[in-house]
Computed example of a mutant assay.
Amino acid sequence: MTDTTDTTDTTDTTAEDLLSVRDLRVSFPGKGWRAPRTEVLKGIDLGIRPGETVGLVGESGSGKTTIGRAILGLVPVASGTITFDGERVDTASAARRRALSRDIQVIFQDPYTSLNPARTIGDTLSEPLLAQGVDSREARGRVAGLLERVRLPGDAAVRLPREFSGGQRQRVAIARALALRPRLVVCDEPVSALDLTTQATVLELLLDIQEETGVAYLFVSHDLSVVRFMSHRVCVIHRGEIVESGDADTLTRTPEHPYTRTLLLSAPIADVTGQRRRREQRAALAQAG
Rank of each mutant, 00 (worst) to 15 (best):
Q170M: 13
Q170V: 13
R171K: 09
R171W: 05
R171H: 08
V172I: 15
A173I: 05
A173E: 04
A173C: 15
I174K: 01
A175Q: 07
A175F: 03
A175N: 06
R176K: 14
R176C: 10
A177D: 03
A177Y: 04
L180R: 10
R181Q: 14
P182L: 04
P182V: 03
L184M: 07
V185C: 02
V185P: 03
V186L: 08
C187V: 04
C187K: 07
D188G: 11
D188C: 11
P190M: 14
P190T: 14
S192W: 01
S192I: 07
S192E: 04
L194R: 04
L194Y: 13
D195V: 00
L196K: 07
L196Q: 08
L196E: 07
T197W: 02
Q199H: 03
Q199E: 13
A200P: 09
E204A: 08
E204N: 13
L205E: 10
L206M: 14
L207R: 15
D208N: 04
I209N: 05
I209P: 11
Q210K: 14
Q210I: 04
E211K: 14
E211H: 12
E212H: 09
T213R: 01
G214I: 06
Y217P: 01
Y217A: 02
Y217C: 03
L218M: 13
F219T: 10
F219I: 08
V220C: 03
S221G: 05
S221E: 00
S221L: 00
S221W: 00
L224I: 15
L224A: 10
S225K: 05
S225Q: 12
V226E: 02
V227P: 01
V227A: 05
F229C: 00
F229H: 14
M230V: 12
S231E: 11
V234D: 03
C235P: 00
C235G: 10
C235Q: 10
V236N: 01
I237Y: 08
I242G: 02
I242D: 03
I242L: 06
I242M: 07
V243D: 12
V243T: 07
V243N: 02
S245Q: 09
S245K: 08
D247N: 12
A248F: 10
A248R: 06
D249W: 03
L251P: 06
L251Y: 10
L251H: 09
T252A: 06
T252W: 06
T252K: 00
R253C: 12
T254K: 09
T254C: 05
E256L: 08
E256W: 00
H257N: 11
H257T: 02
P258Q: 02
Y259F: 03
Y259Q: 07
Y259D: 02
T260L: 12
R261V: 01
R261C: 11
L263Y: 05
L263N: 08
A267H: 03
A267W: 02
P268M: 11
I269S: 04
V272L: 15
V272S: 13
T273M: 05
R276N: 12
R277C: 00
R278T: 06
R278N: 10
R279T: 11
E280I: 05
E280V: 04
Q281H: 04
R282S: 11
R282G: 13
